[in-house]
């Protein structure tokens, strides 16, 4: 597809902006490219597996309540599954947005601000999510009537 936008206001530009600033050592961009492909394929399996188990098996969507989630997270298998999904999806999304920021921002300062926000938000989601998956206690309420708490 050929884009047809025209922004004459952007021209003329200083020659200096074409001077490549990166000193290209290391394979970071290559690994990030490989990670996107790998995590994408894994996520297809994890996400559709998650959807199938939650929405199709048994009573389907009607089974989802606090007890259902509590039951799932008392099983190490689903803890690992959900953590993999959380980390892969968050890093996949993080890397995608990082690429978009690189592609669309023109000033280094904007780039820096947006990337800082991105890193902070990704850290919050990862730390909080991991914490919840592994420290989740369905019986924190003493009057709980869940089967796991008896």
């Amino acid at each position: 597809m050929t884009a047809t936008t025209s922004e004459p206001g952007l021209r003329p530009v200083q020659k200096s902006r074409y001077k490549r600033r990166s000193k290209g050592r290391g394979n970071f961009e290559m690994w990030s490219w490989v990670f996107m492909r790998g995590s994408g394929v894994l996520l297809l399996f994890l996400v559709f597996g998650h959807l199938f188990v939650n929405l199709m098996l048994g009573q389907g969507i009607h089974a989802i309540d606090f007890a259902f989630v509590a039951g799932k997270w008392s099983n190490p298998f689903w803890q690992v599954w959900d953590m993999l999904m959380l980390w892969l999806a968050e890093l996949h999304g993080f890397n995608g947005v990082r690429t978009i920021i690189n592609d669309y921002t023109e000033k280094d300062s904007t780039r820096w601000v947006l990337k800082t926000l991105l890193v902070v938000s990704a850290l919050v989601v990862l730390v909080l999510g991991t914490l919840v998956i592994f420290t989740f206690d369905p019986c924190v309420d003493p009057g709980s009537t869940l089967s796991q708490c008896k």
């Binding site: 597809m1 050929t2 884009a3 490549r20 990166s22 290209g24 394979n27 970071f28 961009e29 290559m30 990030s32 490219w33 690189n102 592609d103």
Partner: peptide, 22 residues
């Protein structure tokens, strides 16, 4: 290949195919 492994090298390609069209 080492030159094009740069941060600004082949990995910035988003395969929009504008170049092939042009």
């Amino acid at each position: 290949l080492e030159i094009l492994n740069d941060k600004e090298g082949v990995w910035r390609c988003r395969t929009t195919f504008n170049c092939t069209d042009a």
